[in-house]
Write a protein that binds this DNA or RNA. Sequence first.
DNA 1: ATATCACATTAGATATAGTCTAAATTTGTC
DNA 2: GACAAATTTAGACTATATCTAATGTGATAT
Lengths: 145, 145
Amino acid sequence: MDTEAIKRSLEGSGLRCTPQRYAVMAFLMEHNRHPTAAEIFEAVNRVDPRSSRATTYNNLRDLVQAGLVREVAVEGRAARFDAKGMRHHHFICDRCGQVEDMEWCDVPRPASGSLGKRILRECELIFRGLCTKCAPRRHASRSVS
Amino acid sequence: MDTEAIKRSLEGSGLRCTPQRYAVMAFLMEHNRHPTAAEIFEAVNRVDPRSSRATTYNNLRDLVQAGLVREVAVEGRAARFDAKGMRHHHFICDRCGQVEDMEWCDVPRPASGSLGKRILRECELIFRGLCTKCAPRRHASRSVS
DNA sequence: ATATCACATTAGATATAGTCTAAATTTGTC
DNA sequence: GACAAATTTAGACTATATCTAATGTGATAT
């Protein structure tokens, strides 16, 4: 993991690169599993430098405000976090609650060509409310022009 | 508000129509403001029949399980609920956190005509992450073919 | 170098949201 | 009405997150 890159990204957002803040950011960049604050707190405290619970929450708040980290709310569960590396969306499966990353699509215009198709695929996920794993594989054998 | 309709809708989902459960459902159908559990609890207890906090939560859980009510998670805030009258999505503004209903679109296919345009408008909201009120009114004077 | 000051961190208390428990009550059915 | 199952209840409990006030740290000016 590129230490300097993280440092630059923090300072570029006006945040001091403290050991605790760095640890949170580094953990989020190494693990794209959308951990909870508690999981991040535990993980950070398995190695030096240690961080208190309040600091972990403070730093998560700061990182979210700075736009480096994204917070995802899931019904009935603790909030989850991830590093905003590539810009992307979160699709939360209505059935299993899993958070699935969705490719970012910057300029939604009247659809035509492959851009339009990508938008529509993502809409289908959102509109259906089930992730790729849970969705019934309808029309699997039908070819799409 | 149609008392019998609510009763039928509850019993059609295998739920007894108790006074407390009815009160929660009726409140959600009368107010489409996506209230929190606490707001629902308070509102129900301003009139008879009274309901305890646990019962309010129990009934919300039951109604969500039965598919009559939808729960919406919002980052850093209490969950919000609404009656699933017409099928719709929830768009949560990144800036103000407001929950905005979004028209349901049942069959997303390669876009053409007005259906495609509607899909794309909703995608634009989702992708931009700002609600109608907060979004910069870009291209306001440009006509769209 | 060191005084200073804003920013960060800390432990623990507190707040908020939601769930659990066990007893009492209500509801539908015989 | 008697019964069983579902529901409600108050309050204890758990989980998640924030606040507080004291302490520590690092950059800058002197």
